[in-house]
Design a protein around this nucleic acid. Structure first.
Lengths: 362, 362
DNA sequence: TTAAATTTTGAAAGCGCTTGCAAAATTTGC
DNA sequence: GCAAATTTTGCAAGCGCTTTCAAAATTTAA
């Protein structure tokens, strides 16, 4: 035994494809074929190779495969935040489908910061992802340039309206709040509070506010009747906005929340302030998280198809990656779930009673 | 212009390090050095290379780097589920720290299935991750063999008690429920319901049940006084268990939940059943999610340091990856947060009244 | 100014795999 | 049974980068 072979034994070299080839008495090319397209290898050798792989404990070297084949079998996903049921849920579903197709998911959070998102895109492209999942459409053209330069498929979530070149898997945020506002106007509401996520760099939030305005306009209600407040997402922010908006001289009779936590905050705060929901004020949410049906009063909200969105996005990308011809994704359906947090607008008499109540409080 | 160069132009070859080298009039080796250790390159060339990279829009090829350098700059993370605030939160924090250190996070979900977890470990190792993050300690030795064979650092979350070879970043689940049970016993409770996550393959859940038993034993209370129920995590499961356990001939006066959603379900169900919490029954949770302080009655629970756990895990792995000598992580502190869902055990008189109430119901 | 010490550089050999090509082996058709 | 068609195989050339080594350039010391 010469020193070199002794070295090999003691240093425990990585088991390579070559080792497998040697053990199975075939060429490296055949082992490679066995790994990628087993049917292209004759059955007897197939068995030999399989045995060799098992006994040697061979694990292919992903980077080498990626380098030689020009495919990394990785898909990148960038969410505004992962610490958020909505995105977490989407990631879970997406990851499930990707890994079922033997793709690995590389994840990053943009923390709602476009610059960080750009850096994350850069990082994921550098990592060599074969496809990219993003949330929302609005971002610097630089990002789209980077992606298209790499010629990889990508898809954006949470918004509808794209085409094949710029595919979106999502729903119509404008229509969602428009529909909700229509419903509230139908209940007699005329003054609205809108609790929105921070609008800058968030096209979904912008759309949702637009939907409210659109409905108002359609009903001939002046835009001044909607008070828009914007905050980071969060329950406490919802409470704070509720307190602020109800202290106005002429508070709204209905509050439209751009996200569910705001609505929860509003409901909690209303309870603490002794304001009856929906008697004195109606509150509506967006997304229909689990708590919405459990909370008292249960929350009227827009049900958004989060899991389906993620699943379709996965299907779309996987189809493109396997070279299939795919149509642009169509917008997903959303539902208005009417529960107990919304009701007819308080009458003027009721407003009068409220004045009495307030006067009494002195 | 010959046909080959025309081809190059039309096909838009990838910009490689060689191209940069040519444009900057240096060798490929120097460009590589510029990318990895800029200080090793003289300032004048540094500028030339930087310009060339910018004008050519060069992006390094991750797989090639990984192959040549034997480091992928990727860290794998496998969670039982990503669609869960706890794990989502941990992933967000972990990803944040990893990407700040220029590491990319590859994520997978084991869906609480040990076999799937094993496959995911395989996949991530094949992808070439430089380190691995796992949840919980209990898993097949095969997995640990795979990991140690690759000689990469790893860390497990949500449990304490590991050493440097098998590091755990987490807290003592046994002590947590033991402490909680001590507190409840101190309030006079003697019969307990324990709502646990599915115990099989879940060492955290097992620990939490053990903690209850340990406390009972220390107080000389027979183990029969604890009724263990186990379900998947979820609010509806909590409701269901609550309904089941309160229909017993001799129901517990306190319920210890192995996860917060169970406790929410119990509280909601109690409200619907007209059972007073904590007057008739005390309910305690585990993790202190945001809702726990908002719900009525607010929830007595164990606060677990989720973000800190993820952060420490990231620090630990990054330190190991940069070759630092690091000590085994120490267990994290947890707190018992006493709120309004727990109170003194109902007196026998009270039990008598309850009997009356039940009889009246007929 | 020159030799010695130091820094910076480029050539070249891989890293572990895939894949085009042509040769070898096998199957098919008659 | 033999030629033709088909399937299976191995060789060898990369994929795009890092890194060793020794040479070249620069700095330092005297």
């Amino acid at each position: 035994m010469d020193s070199e072979s002794a070295l090999n034994i003691s240093i425990e070299q990585r088991v390579t494809l070559k080792d497998v080839a040697r053990a199975a008495d075939v060429s490296a090319a055949t082992v490679s074929r066995f790994i990628n397209t087993p049917v292209a290898v004759r059955t007897d050798k197939r068995q030999r190779i399989e045995d060799a792989i098992k006994t040697l404990g061979y694990v292919p070297h992903g980077a080498a495969q990626a380098l030689a084949s020009r495919r990394s079998r990785m898909i990148g996903a960038i969410f505004p935040s992962i610490d958020n049921t909505l995105f977490g849920c989407a990631l879970e579903v997406f990851q499930h489908h990707a890994s079922a197709a033997d793709y690995t998911v590389v994840v990053a959070s943009s923390e709602y910061d476009p610059e960080l998102e750009t850096r994350q895109v850069r990082r994921l492209l550098r990592s060599g992802v074969d496809a990219l999942l993003l949330v929302g459409v609005e971002r610097s053209p630089e990002v789209y340039n980077l992606i298209t330069a790499r010629k990889i498929p990508y898809v954006t979530l949470w918004r509808s309206g794209g085409d094949i070149l710029h595919p979106c898997v999502g729903f119509d945020n404008v229509a969602a709040t428009e529909h909700l506002t229509d419903y509230l106007i139908g209940l007699g509401h005329k003054r609205f509070g809108v609790f929105s996520g921070l609008l800058k760099h968030n096209d979904r939030a912008q759309d949702r506010v637009s939907g409210v305005y659109k409905s108002l306009e359609n009903h001939g209600i002046s835009a001044e009747n909607a008070t828009i407040l914007e905050r980071q997402f969060g329950v406490d922010e919802g409470r704070e906005m509720f307190r602020q908006i109800t202290s106005n001289r002429n508070p709204p009779t209905a509050i439209i929340c751009g996200s569910e936590p705001f609505a929860y905050g509003a409901i909690f705060e209303a309870a603490e302030m002794g304001i009856d929901v929906p008697g004195e004020i109606s509150i509506a949410g967006f997304d229909d998280l689990w708590l919405s049906s459990q909370i008292k009063p249960s929350l009227t909200t827009i049900r958004t198809p989060q899991r389906e969105m993620a699943e379709r996005a996965a299907r779309y990308l996987l189809a493109r990656l396997s070279g299939e011809q795919v149509a642009a994704p169509r917008p997903l359906e959303i539902d208005l779930i009417i529960r107990n947090s919304t009701g007819t607008a308080p009458t003027d008499l009721r407003s009068y009673e409220e004045v009495v109540r307030i006067v009494k409080a002195f």
